Lab assay of single mutants.
Amino acid sequence: MASQGTKRSYEQMETDGERQNATEIRASVGKMIGGIGRFYIQMCTELKLSDYEGRLIQNSLTIERMVLSAFDERRNKYLEEHPSAGKDPKKTGGPIYRRVNGKWMRELILYDKEEIRRIWRQANNGDDATAGLTHMMIWHSNLNDATYQRTRALVRTGMDPRMCSLMQGSTLPRRSGAAGAAVKGVGTMVMELVRMIKRGINDRNFWRGENGRKTRIAYERMCNILKGKFQTAAQKAMMDQVRESRNPGNAEFEDLTFLARSALILRGSVAHKSCLPACVYGPAVASGYDFEREGYSLVGIDPFRLLQNSQVYSLIRPNENPAHKSQLVWMACHSAAFEDLRVLSFIKGTKVLPRGKLSTRGVQIASNENMETMESSTLELRSRYWAIRTRSGGNTNQQRASAGQISIQPTFSVQRNLPFDRTTIMAAFNGNTEGRTSDMRTEIIRMMESARPEDVSFQGRGVFELSDEKAASPIVPSFDMSNEGSYFFGDNAEEYDN
């Protein structure tokens, strides 16, 4: 783990906690998980779902989305002020799938948001429990990260689609708070800032007046979040320049895209947490497990152990491969979309394939898809080993990566060399080191050039047997250095459309 220093740990961010010791953190995270579980059980009762239907990941996603929508204050306010045809701002819903006479049927349900809020609060001892809501947002974000390569979004903001390893959390809503900021990748933060800068260039009043003052505060806050992700002084200094700019424009845009590229080699610290679907927490609570009393951590053995003992089902389209669908969801559960496939294969105990080789589309089923041909199958979400999630980018030494994705962002704290394609990355730096950030740029390029592919990161860190909950005997895996390590390699994943 990167030293926490003055930073709060993510469990504290996750639970809005002030400084807590490890036991208190485990208890408050457990409380959050228990609340999600209780809410899910109650919703299944309301909807009269069978046990099997309640364990269907598509039903879980609909129920999670309903509660997130019920608590989305800004959108609710907007919907009330701008009524649109056929949208009731006070209601929320989605597809629920039921097994009827041996076939899967889709039923569109509609609930009062007020009623959903009441059920959620009741499951969370009367609190709004925003930490639990954020947790579900991060699960949705991790699922998107594993399912889609955001080529269009990258290109629109002047970045290269091969930089997708920097895009963790790119679909997280803005209201996801400190826990959300911690899991956002460098590219995601750059993209958010670039969008602001572009608006400022096109709209003279963007930075002016009372609204402009708020915009400015948001801009500086985002700059500080991004600065905190960088691990070298030169990158941090460049972020200070971007933040202090009187009138952010093209120079800042250039600096930010430069920094994003540099992060492929001088990786930023991005938190990883295993956020599971509500249909995993519900049955665990129903079986009598007391998360608050037992304590829970999002970055240790607990999620692995929970998945070892969970039964989750998914709808499967006619030509999809259930094992591939399982891999997709497994990666999402562990926030591992940008991790090295060699490491993932070792931990999972079966070969993890790149996205383009998977015969599976996303987990969600569109409303126009034919239910007649839908089957369902068990998702295999178990693992051979477990490993500690990392909050750091690993040290800054790398190795060759593949054509589709030119770097990785480690999820697990496991000893290995970190793949990246130096030639491709360095070719993108057209040696432009003039301007006010020239000395920093020169320094950053120097550090990137001296990074050695064969150097090892996370020295001495290994994986653990599932029986080793105290992480007492690390097993340090050895990897084939020459092997392909990137998930979005030469990829044809669908595009994420909101």
Results as ranks from 00 to 15, higher is better:
residue 137 M to Y: 06
residue 276 L to N: 04
residue 91 K to M: 07
residue 266 L to V: 15
residue 380 E to A: 05
residue 329 V to S: 00
residue 264 L to Y: 04
residue 38 R to T: 09
residue 107 E to L: 04
residue 364 Q to W: 09
residue 187 G to F: 03
residue 18 E to M: 03
residue 293 R to C: 12
residue 439 D to E: 14
residue 81 E to Q: 12
residue 236 K to Q: 07
residue 426 M to E: 04
residue 262 S to P: 10
residue 51 D to A: 07
residue 448 M to V: 08
residue 70 A to L: 01
residue 77 K to I: 08
residue 325 K to N: 10
residue 104 W to D: 04
residue 289 Y to S: 06
residue 328 L to V: 15
residue 293 R to M: 13
residue 423 T to L: 05
residue 355 R to W: 05
residue 318 P to S: 07
residue 253 F to I: 12
residue 232 T to S: 11
residue 290 D to C: 13
residue 67 V to L: 11
residue 54 G to K: 08
residue 178 A to K: 14
residue 350 T to F: 11
residue 244 E to R: 00
residue 338 F to E: 01
residue 491 D to N: 13
residue 115 E to C: 06
residue 175 R to K: 15
residue 470 K to C: 06
residue 11 E to L: 00
residue 124 N to Y: 08
residue 69 S to Y: 14
residue 28 S to M: 14
residue 268 G to P: 15
residue 491 D to S: 08
residue 111 Y to P: 00
residue 186 V to G: 01
residue 174 R to G: 08
residue 227 K to C: 03
residue 20 Q to E: 11
residue 391 R to F: 12
residue 272 H to A: 01
residue 204 R to K: 08
residue 2 A to K: 03
residue 202 N to L: 05
residue 90 K to W: 02
residue 318 P to Y: 14
residue 335 S to F: 07
residue 73 E to W: 06
residue 336 A to E: 06
residue 320 E to S: 09
residue 325 K to T: 08
residue 144 N to V: 05
residue 226 L to M: 13
residue 441 R to K: 09
residue 422 R to H: 02
residue 77 K to Q: 11
residue 234 A to F: 02
residue 6 T to R: 02
residue 104 W to L: 13
residue 331 M to N: 06
residue 335 S to P: 09
residue 483 N to C: 08
residue 39 F to S: 07
residue 24 E to D: 13
residue 251 A to Q: 08
residue 14 E to T: 04
residue 328 L to F: 14
residue 283 P to R: 04
residue 252 E to H: 02
residue 1 M to D: 13
residue 393 G to T: 04
residue 269 S to E: 08
residue 75 R to E: 08
residue 90 K to D: 00
residue 497 D to E: 11
residue 70 A to Y: 05
residue 477 P to W: 05
residue 180 G to I: 08
residue 283 P to H: 13
residue 447 M to C: 15
residue 367 S to M: 06
residue 257 T to D: 05
residue 129 A to W: 01
residue 168 Q to Y: 04
residue 189 M to F: 09
residue 54 G to M: 09
residue 366 A to Y: 04
residue 399 Q to I: 10
residue 346 F to D: 12
residue 32 M to W: 06
residue 305 R to N: 13
residue 284 A to E: 00
residue 248 P to H: 05
residue 465 E to D: 11
residue 161 P to C: 07
residue 331 M to D: 01
residue 393 G to H: 10
residue 46 E to N: 02
residue 386 W to C: 11
residue 374 M to Y: 14
residue 313 Y to I: 05
residue 373 T to L: 14
residue 294 E to L: 08
residue 312 V to E: 08
residue 35 G to N: 12
residue 208 R to M: 11
residue 448 M to G: 10
residue 282 G to S: 15
residue 24 E to L: 15
residue 39 F to M: 09
residue 427 A to V: 13
residue 46 E to Q: 11
residue 403 A to S: 15
residue 181 A to N: 14
residue 292 E to C: 08
residue 104 W to P: 01
residue 154 L to F: 09
residue 99 R to P: 06
residue 446 R to Y: 09
residue 397 N to V: 13
residue 446 R to D: 13
residue 105 M to C: 14
residue 163 M to G: 04
residue 40 Y to C: 07
residue 45 T to N: 11
residue 52 Y to M: 10
residue 219 Y to E: 04
residue 85 A to V: 07
residue 149 Q to N: 08
residue 99 R to Q: 08
residue 466 L to I: 12
residue 467 S to G: 11
residue 175 R to M: 15
residue 208 R to I: 03
residue 223 C to Y: 10
residue 494 E to F: 06
residue 231 Q to D: 10
residue 318 P to T: 09
residue 491 D to Q: 04
residue 176 S to E: 12
residue 484 E to C: 13
residue 380 E to S: 09
residue 65 R to N: 14
residue 224 N to C: 14
residue 446 R to G: 14
residue 154 L to R: 04
residue 360 T to F: 06
residue 315 L to T: 01
residue 99 R to T: 10
residue 204 R to N: 01
residue 138 I to R: 04
residue 300 G to I: 03
residue 161 P to Q: 02
residue 108 L to E: 08
residue 189 M to V: 14
residue 26 R to H: 06
residue 380 E to N: 04
residue 161 P to L: 07
residue 277 P to N: 04
residue 358 L to W: 10
residue 268 G to M: 07
residue 163 M to I: 13
residue 466 L to K: 01
residue 435 G to P: 03
residue 171 T to D: 06
residue 22 A to I: 13
residue 381 L to C: 14
residue 37 G to T: 06
residue 6 T to F: 00
residue 483 N to F: 13
residue 259 L to Q: 09
residue 390 T to L: 02
residue 180 G to C: 10
residue 303 P to W: 05
residue 167 M to G: 06
residue 47 L to N: 07
residue 439 D to F: 01
residue 182 A to L: 11
residue 3 S to G: 12
residue 285 V to E: 14
residue 277 P to D: 04
residue 379 L to G: 00
residue 264 L to A: 09
residue 441 R to I: 10
residue 314 S to E: 02
residue 203 D to H: 15
residue 420 F to E: 00
residue 170 S to D: 12
residue 468 D to G: 11
residue 43 M to Y: 04
residue 465 E to M: 13
residue 421 D to C: 06
residue 12 Q to C: 04
residue 440 M to V: 15
residue 439 D to T: 02
residue 439 D to G: 10
residue 242 V to H: 02
residue 398 Q to M: 15
residue 21 N to W: 14
residue 374 M to P: 04
residue 91 K to W: 04
residue 437 T to H: 06
residue 87 K to C: 03
residue 306 L to G: 04
residue 63 I to E: 04
residue 33 I to P: 06
residue 152 R to M: 05
residue 121 R to P: 02
residue 425 I to G: 01
residue 56 L to M: 11
residue 249 G to Y: 07
residue 253 F to P: 00
residue 91 K to N: 11
residue 179 A to G: 12
residue 369 E to T: 10
residue 211 N to I: 11
residue 243 R to T: 09
residue 68 L to H: 08
residue 367 S to F: 13
residue 58 Q to S: 00
residue 306 L to P: 02
residue 486 S to E: 07
residue 223 C to W: 13
residue 260 A to K: 01
residue 213 R to M: 14
residue 328 L to T: 10
residue 426 M to L: 15
residue 343 V to N: 03
residue 410 P to A: 13
residue 286 A to D: 11
residue 173 P to C: 01
residue 169 G to Q: 06
residue 86 G to I: 01
residue 152 R to V: 01
residue 60 S to E: 04
residue 340 D to W: 05
residue 243 R to D: 01
residue 182 A to E: 09
residue 30 G to C: 03
residue 428 A to L: 00
residue 250 N to E: 08
residue 386 W to S: 15
residue 389 R to V: 04
residue 328 L to M: 15
residue 440 M to R: 06
residue 100 V to F: 09
residue 114 E to Q: 13
residue 428 A to D: 00
residue 460 G to T: 06
residue 493 A to Q: 07
residue 102 G to E: 12
residue 188 T to Y: 05
residue 24 E to R: 01
residue 327 Q to M: 10
residue 118 R to Y: 08
residue 73 E to K: 10
residue 397 N to S: 10
residue 62 T to N: 13
residue 31 K to V: 08
residue 337 A to T: 10
residue 416 R to M: 06
residue 436 R to N: 06
residue 330 W to M: 03
residue 486 S to H: 09
residue 79 L to F: 10
residue 451 A to I: 05
residue 268 G to Y: 03
residue 12 Q to K: 06
residue 176 S to M: 04
residue 179 A to K: 06
residue 136 M to I: 15
residue 449 E to R: 06
residue 273 K to R: 11
residue 64 E to P: 01
residue 43 M to H: 01
residue 391 R to V: 14
residue 304 F to C: 14
residue 156 R to N: 08
residue 458 F to P: 00
residue 408 I to Y: 00
residue 245 S to Y: 01
residue 301 I to F: 12
residue 103 K to N: 15
residue 74 R to P: 01
residue 124 N to H: 14
residue 356 G to R: 08
residue 11 E to P: 01
residue 34 G to F: 01
residue 294 E to A: 06
residue 79 L to D: 02
residue 348 K to S: 01
residue 403 A to N: 15
residue 2 A to D: 01
residue 460 G to N: 02
residue 413 S to V: 14
residue 418 L to C: 13
residue 199 R to N: 12
residue 258 F to M: 09
residue 190 V to P: 00
residue 188 T to F: 06
residue 494 E to S: 03
residue 312 V to Q: 00
residue 9 S to N: 09
residue 201 I to T: 11
residue 149 Q to I: 10
residue 63 I to C: 13
residue 127 D to A: 11
residue 178 A to T: 14
residue 196 M to H: 07
residue 258 F to I: 13
residue 442 T to H: 00
residue 427 A to R: 07
residue 335 S to V: 03
residue 383 S to D: 07
residue 392 S to T: 13
residue 434 E to N: 08
residue 387 A to R: 00
residue 356 G to T: 04
residue 425 I to N: 09
residue 456 V to D: 07
residue 488 F to K: 04
residue 380 E to V: 06
residue 219 Y to Q: 04
residue 9 S to P: 15
residue 474 P to F: 09
residue 112 D to V: 11
residue 329 V to W: 02
residue 452 R to D: 04
residue 84 S to A: 15
residue 202 N to H: 10
residue 90 K to L: 12
residue 285 V to N: 11
residue 304 F to M: 04
residue 106 R to F: 11
residue 477 P to Q: 05
residue 61 L to T: 15
residue 224 N to H: 14
residue 184 K to A: 05
residue 343 V to P: 02
residue 69 S to F: 10
residue 130 T to I: 11
residue 82 H to W: 04
residue 20 Q to I: 00
residue 216 R to M: 12
residue 476 V to M: 14
residue 405 Q to D: 00
residue 491 D to E: 13
residue 109 I to Y: 03
residue 25 I to M: 10
residue 4 Q to P: 15
residue 478 S to T: 11
residue 261 R to L: 10
residue 141 S to W: 04
residue 472 A to Y: 13
residue 183 V to E: 00
residue 202 N to S: 10
residue 313 Y to L: 15
residue 39 F to P: 00
residue 381 L to E: 05
residue 12 Q to I: 14
residue 324 H to V: 04
residue 339 E to T: 01
residue 257 T to E: 05
